[in-house]
Design a protein around this nucleic acid. Sequence first.
RNA 1: GGCGGUGUAGCUCAGUUGGUUAGAGCACCGGCUUCAUAAGCCGGUUGUCGGGAGUUCAAAUCUCCCCGCCGCUACCA
Length: 684
Amino acid sequence: MAEKPFFITTPIYYINSVPHVGHAYTQIAADARARFERLRGKKVYFLTGTDENAIKVARVAQEQGRDPLEFCDELAASFRAVWDALNISYDDFNRTTEARHRIPVQRVVQKLWDDGHLELGTYSGWYSVPDETFFREEDTVEIDGAHYIKNPSEDQSKAPLEWIEETSHFFKLSTFQDALLATYDQNPEMLRPETRRNETLSFIRMGLRDTSISRVQDWGIPLPAGVPEHENHVVYVWFPDALLNYATAPGYLSENPETAQHFEQIWPPDLQLMSKDIFTKFHATMWPALLKSLDLELPRELFAHGFWTVNGRKISKRDPETIIEPIAFSRKISEISGADFPIAVDALRYYCLREVTFGVDGDFSPQGCVARYNSDLANGLGNLLQRTLVMLQKPDYFHGVVPASQGRDFGLQSDLPRLAQSVEQDYAALNFSGALNTIWEVIGRANKLIEDEKPWAKVKAGRVDEIADLLRELLSTCQWAAVTTSPAMPTAGAAIWRVLGRVESMTWQSALDTEFVAGHRCLTVQPLFPRADLAKMEDGAAKFTTKEKPMNSNPPTENSTLQAPAQPQAQEPKEANFITIDDFAKVELRTGKVVEAERVPKADKLLRLQVDLGSETRQILAGIAQHYSPDEMIGCIVVIVANLAPRTLRGYESQGMLLAASNDEGVLSLVTTSAEIAPGAPVR
RNA sequence: GGCGGUGUAGCUCAGUUGGUUAGAGCACCGGCUUCAUAAGCCGGUUGUCGGGAGUUCAAAUCUCCCCGCCGCUACCA
């Protein structure tokens, strides 16, 4: 039987916007690893795709009077176009609206039912359409009769939630708790990096709840007919629909015997990459539990990379300057340097992989990228290649023909195999920055070697022979660098390979066998990485955002549908959202004077206040401890909701709600009155 | 609050199981050089290795306490 191909995945992307650098990062890293494995002679199956079964996709299509499927075709094509431009060498692009995904998903659900992993129940809860997520009652907050997500994260909706109550099918996730912990105990390398592994273990140890896998909707994959109460239900878009793409794409439960056999050969994934926000809950908990329920082998490695900020700011649609679209950005690099577009793409890829250790968060700065482009690519690698080839080319040197060895050894070429091994280990461990670091140390050594040997002096003295071996070592080093950098920079690697006169296909072995035969001819070149004008790289990243957005309703998310999507923008007030004066009258607002205040033990955010309302004193708990100290609260005039049902928090009853304004940056400010007014005064 | 991380030159970070005067890149200054993309090379500047105490012949490295920051988690009526 043939060797198992190296199976690598990225998440499938929620097609709600054009991709930005955050999305591209996963692709670039996966692509670097995939190319590296191919260089090593491995057959690779690199899978990516789009998630199209979210109800919001259908709704937006409808709003635009479009056919949802056609709409998806367009969006999926735009994603592919970006990946193609970035030279992402995916082998398969899976769309969850395709039959090859839909049919096996139905079979999976049927199988789960038949094998007793599902049970019927009633799902009732608060549903956020933009987030495609249900929230427990205790995770919502009621304001003016509408419910909202409590403490919405940056990515979550601040729009009102919908109450949904329906028959649903539950996956018995809780039954896999011990098995998962045992697996991770036995395979400590499976979840990486370590910090994410720790988070996952503590998440699982807190206890897993069974999870609903169906929804009453008209968009998505219908439940199979063999499952009770399947009518009107579709498979929940996150679980197991989207996650199953990793299995359906290679052919799990396919009717086609050839495809099914492909699956047998390829399963399990060797590496699944994703950003950290969809790691713990989805990829490291639900996904492996699902695989266990299907008796499928678990992926060998799950790796969560970090987030990018842009110039220190969180990537957010509300902050357009943080939205850097990779194509627009690469065009800019190309424009200010004169480099070909694919080379500019390589510069972006290089920057992403070199700038931060893979796995931790990093900051993306356009100027930083240009600085690295100039110092590492133009002055470093590009210039080394240029000076080497020009020396070889010059009439008083070697006329472009590799000279015969004179038996001198400068110690660099002989060191290359050892260094290639170090780079190889780093790539295999996803330590991209480490690999590139080592490569640039070699480039530095080569530049120093030229200075030390002063070939120009020897040529002037008529002793060209003495530099024959120097040139040979430099050529070998360039070839070595072409091979070792090519996973990160495929275009540049191939270009160097070509100008060195290589016509055979590149392999990792060619980083080890770098000997040039005498008489070999190299080509001449223009600078591969022309220097860029740093001054022309403005700070504003808005330059890297195109206007057209396939779906304008939401900001891009860091990664995929599997992760928490999208903070919806503030909704335009619609007719239907108005309340009447009678509705408002239901809310009893009163002023109060804080007479006592203290922190609630073991709670970071809670203050316990005694508020004088004139006729009575109320105990009110408020989540403002990070903004106001107990001392400064005393004597404050505050506005409270006086007729809110009491609720116990951290063991204390809160008899009302204190009003405060807060913005997206988390700044919070109390509502007060502009003049001293008697406690208990009604607020209207 | 609990758990997990982290704090080293202006910036980004290396510093393996404790061992000689604490390192790299970028930035900055001076010099050299010309094969090369005003590229390259050499030299130089800046550090109480978050703070304190302890173990040790020896601690950035181990122990304890404290402070800051980050992540997950609980608390926001």
